[in-house]
Design a protein around this nucleic acid. Structure first.
Length: 154
DNA sequence: GCCAACGTTGGC
DNA sequence: GCCAACGTTGGC
């Protein structure tokens, strides 16, 4: 079992949107960064747990937990000319971008803000999310960090 | 809205 | 393969 953190803009797709989605499941399409793609394609397996992070909002922070409920498959938006995620270099024979599906697990009683995470850094040590200039939308979380953050978030 | 940081693109 | 230009992310 592995642990992850995934960013999303709540204006576009929030933890409540996931909670209210059919079957409380949703596809994580639109990732167009190779490193993030590789984490989804090569790292994410059924049942992996995910911190659901709200970014580009006030305040940003961890909103809850999701779980991988379907492993990677080609992201159909890359073939869709009308999609903002359309990629002319991709073909169904040679897809470039992949996505997973995630399932709602829980929403925390309150958003655990980026500020609080920064304050925890002294105790937890380096957390990839807090690295300067980090823009990855999908990143691994170590089991130790997961455990401690979870305790703090609940 | 600004801008630092970083990824990607494309000319050479 | 280098690197300047450009685009995007995301906190502030």
């Amino acid at each position: 079992m592995q642990y992850w953190l995934m960013k999303t803009e709540p204006d576009v797709f929030s933890i409540d949107d996931l909670k209210n989605a059919p079957g409380q499941r949703a596809g994580w399409d639109g990732v167009r960064n190779y490193q993030a793609r590789n984490f989804m394609r090569d790292g994410m397996r059924m049942g992996d747990q995910i911190f659901f992070y709200h970014s580009s909002c006030d305040p940003p922070g961890i909103a809850g937990i999701a779980e991988v409920c379907k492993e990677c498959y080609p992201d159909p938006t890359q073939f869709d000319r009308k999609s903002e995620y359309y990629d002319p270099k991709a073909s169904s024979a040679k897809p470039i971008w992949y996505m997973v599906e995630v399932k709602f697990i829980e929403k925390f009683p309150r958003l655990v803000t980026l500020d609080e995470l920064k304050n925890l850094q002294a105790k937890l040590g380096d957390f990839p999310l807090l690295k300067r200039g980090n823009r990855l939308s999908v990143m691994p979380v170590s089991p130790a960090h997961w455990k401690q953050l979870l305790k703090f978030c609940k």
